[in-house]
Amino acid sequence: MNTQESPHNTFSPKATVFAVAAASALLQACRKQDDIYELETPLLQADNSSKTKLKTNEQFINILYTQLFQTAPTEDYLSALSTILTSIGDQLLAREVVIANFFNTPEVQLPSNEEMRNDIGTFVDATYKNFYLRHAGAAEKAWVTRFIETQPDFTPELVYFAFALSNEYLYY
């Protein structure tokens, strides 16, 4: 009877498991990690000095109409109103007329006075973004916020009117 142990039985099962686990860990440790690319959220702060081109009548109407009615005007509407604007010599006055007509339309989409008064700062931020496609500067936000706070009868409609009529809104 051969009582001598065979040489392949040198390691116990526990040792074998340990060895395999260790080798596996070593292999994992040597694997190259995948590159992860991330973007920081950029602060889009368009400088108003880059707005140097005057909007055409069509551009002005199209953009304002879309903002106020949340839908684009038809081509016929755009063409007709643009022609009418051309027939009025004082173009600032013509825009006042157009805006005053828009605001007399029941379909116009405006925040309520309550919404504006509940968080004037947020309303001012949103208005700057909507009309100027940029954030309000700190001083701008402070001034406009304070202005609205101190004018209890000043409505979102009047704020929108002022922005739509302002020089910056005429340019892109």
């Binding site: 108003n48 500067g137 202005f147 000043f154 704020v159 002022a162 302002s166 020089n167 910056e168 340019y171």
Partner: peptide, 12 residues
């Protein structure tokens, strides 16, 4: 309203 417009214009 024109007062607000005037302020807005002063920054452009």
């Amino acid at each position: 309203m024109m007062q607000l417009k005037s302020f807005l214009d002063s920054n452009f």
